[in-house]
Nucleic acid binder design. Sequence first.
DNA 1: CATGAATGAGGGTTCATTCAT
DNA 2: CATGAATGAACCCTCATTCAT
Lengths: 190, 190, 190, 190
Amino acid sequence: MDSDGEVTKQLLLEKAVEQFAECGYHSTKISDIVNKAKVTQPTFYLYFESKEAIFLEITEFFQLQLINLTSASLLEENLETHSLKLQICLGLTRIFTFFEENPLLTKIGFVEADSAKELKENMVKQITENLKEEQRMGYFSDAYPMDLVAESLVGSIERLTLNEILTKKSKPVDLAEVLVEIYFTGIQKK
Amino acid sequence: MDSDGEVTKQLLLEKAVEQFAECGYHSTKISDIVNKAKVTQPTFYLYFESKEAIFLEITEFFQLQLINLTSASLLEENLETHSLKLQICLGLTRIFTFFEENPLLTKIGFVEADSAKELKENMVKQITENLKEEQRMGYFSDAYPMDLVAESLVGSIERLTLNEILTKKSKPVDLAEVLVEIYFTGIQKK
Amino acid sequence: MDSDGEVTKQLLLEKAVEQFAECGYHSTKISDIVNKAKVTQPTFYLYFESKEAIFLEITEFFQLQLINLTSASLLEENLETHSLKLQICLGLTRIFTFFEENPLLTKIGFVEADSAKELKENMVKQITENLKEEQRMGYFSDAYPMDLVAESLVGSIERLTLNEILTKKSKPVDLAEVLVEIYFTGIQKK
Amino acid sequence: MDSDGEVTKQLLLEKAVEQFAECGYHSTKISDIVNKAKVTQPTFYLYFESKEAIFLEITEFFQLQLINLTSASLLEENLETHSLKLQICLGLTRIFTFFEENPLLTKIGFVEADSAKELKENMVKQITENLKEEQRMGYFSDAYPMDLVAESLVGSIERLTLNEILTKKSKPVDLAEVLVEIYFTGIQKK
DNA sequence: CATGAATGAGGGTTCATTCAT
DNA sequence: CATGAATGAACCCTCATTCAT
C-alpha cells in the first residue's frame, strides 16, 4: 500500500537509517529521527515499538537481503561451469557491489549492529564449508586450516568494505580480484 | 608510589577496563565502575576528570604500549638477518601475543574506541610502506597494490584477534604462521 | 496563543520569578520552580534550555520593558514644555512606578542579575548626558562633575527602590519629589 | 601569637578575602581558598567551622572596623568646632578612605554579604538621627523627610564606593566634597 | 493518522565536609 | 599542625516513552 501511513513509516525508516549510519545506535536519538522526518515523537511509536525495534527492523532487512544475495550466488555457481577462481571472484564482487549500493544499510547492519557479529560468524561458517569442500576436491592445499582462512577472509572483506567501498575509494570488482589473487596465489614473487 | 590513592586509582582503572570491555563506552556507567571498586562516585572524580577522561587514559595506555611494541619490533628486524617471511611471522606473533596478554585492553583500545579507527589506519600505512619497500627489493610481485594488501591484512589481523585470540581459540604463533603462509603463497594447490 | 504549552511556560516563568526574587540565582533550584508549578523537571526543559536561559529570559524581559519605559519618557519630554524640574520628577516617578508594579522582576533584573551592573552603567551614562546637556543650557551650575552626580543619583534610586518601593514603605511620586528637591536645591536651610 | 597556626589562619583569611571579593560567596569554593593558600582542605577546617563561618568572620571584621571608624568620627566631631558642612565632608572622606584602603574587604562586607543590608540600614538610621538633630538645630530645611534623605545618601555612597573608589577612578575627598555640595545646596544654578 | 504536552528513570558531575593517620 | 583519601547529598540535565486529544 501507498497509504499515508506506509509513506510515513518508510520516511521514518529512511531517516533512521541515515542517523544510525552517521551516529551509531546510542548517539541516535528518537528526536533526531522524527525531526529529520518532520513528524512528532508519538508518530514514531505508531510504527515502531521502540528504538530497538526500528533498529532491528533495519538490520534484519539488511541481513535478509544479504542472505538472499549469497543464496542466489550459490545457486548460480552450481549452474555455471567457470573456473573456481572466477566463481569466487564473482561472488565477492556481488557482495561488495551490494555493499556499495547500500552504504548506509551496510554501515549499520554490517558494522554497528550487535547482530553483525553473528552475521559474520555465519559467513565464516559458510565460507569454511565451501573452502573445505573445495579442499577435498583438490583445489586447495591440505595444509591450511580452512576455518582460519575463512576468518581471515571475512576480516579482509570487512575492512575493505569499510575503508574502500563505503568511502568509494575502490570498485567492487577490483577488490574482489585483488582478494582472490592474494588468497589463491599469495603475493610472493616466484 | 603504592600510596592508597594510587592503589585506588589502579583499582578504578582495572574495574573500568573490565566494564568498558564488557559493555562498551555508552553502556558503562560511572556507578558500575565505582560499585565494582567499592568506592563512591566522588572518589572516581578524585582520580579522573570525567568518564571520557578515564576512557582516553585507558585507550592511550593501550595504544602507547602497542606502538612501543611495533617500534621495538622494527629495530630488531634490522639487526637480525632471518628470512623476510620469518621476520614478518615474528612481528605478527608479537602483536597477537600482546593482544592475548591484554585481552580486555585490546577489546577496548583496538575495537571499541573511536581512536581505534585511526590506530588501524596508521597500521595500514606503515604496513603499506614496508610492503612497498620489500616489493621494490624484489620480494613481492609487482602486480599487487600494496595499500589494498595492507588493508586486507589488517582486516585479517583484526578479525583473528577478536575471534581467535580474545576467545583463546588459537595461539598467536599459529595464527601468525597461517597468515604469513596465506599472504605469501596463497592457498591454491600447485 | 493560550495553548497548554504557553500556559505552562508562563506558569514556570512566574514561579521562577518568585523563586529567583526570593532566593537569588544560585540558591534557586530547578526543582523548586517545577515543584511550585506542579510539573516535573523534564517539563521545564521543554520550555527553557537551562537554568541560565530562563534567568536570562526573565532579566531581558525586565530590562527591555525598562528601556521601553525610559525611551517613551524621553519622547514625551520633548513634546511637553513643563519646567525641567517637573519633567525629571515625572521621569523618576515613572521609573519608581514601574518598579512598584513589578517588584519581583525588579528584584531580579535590577538587583540580582549580573547584567544589572551594565544596566545601571547605561542609566548613569544616559543621565550624565542629559545633565550635561542641561548644564550647557544653563539649568545647572558648572561646578558639578555630572558623571558623579549621575552616579550618585542612580545610587539613590537603587537604594530607595530596594528599601522604600519594594517594601511598599513609600509612594513613587513622593520619592521622586524628594529626590528632585534634594538634587536641585539641596537640604540646607537658606 | 605568631605561631604556625596563627600564620596559617591569617593566610587562609587573606586568600579567602581575595576569592570572595573576586567571585562572591557562592562561586568561591573551599578548594579555591586552600589551593591559593597551598594547604589542604582539612587544614581549613582546623581554623574555621565552615564556609559560612569564615565568611562571617571576614564580614564581622570589616563591619567592626567600619563601626569603630564612625564612632571615632562622631567623638571628634563633637570636640572640634568646624562648620557642619566641613564636619560631614570629613566624615564622608574618612569612610571613603577606609573603603579605598580595604577594597577587597569592602567588596565583601559592604556589597556581597547578606549582612551588608543590615549594616547599611544601621548607617541609614544613624544618619537619619544626625540629620534630624541638625534639622532641629536649624541647619536643614524642615521640608525634608530625613529618613529618605539618609536612605538616598547611603545609596549614593554605596554606588560611588563601588564604581569610583573600588575602581580607583576618584579620590575619597573629591567624592566627599561633591556629595556634600549636592546634598547641601543642590545642583541648580541660582 | 497525527500531535501537543508531559513524565519516569536515570546519568554525570560538584562540593562542603570528615575520618584516619 | 597537617594531610591523603573519601563521602553524603545534591543538582542539572537527557531521553525513551506515553497520555489525551
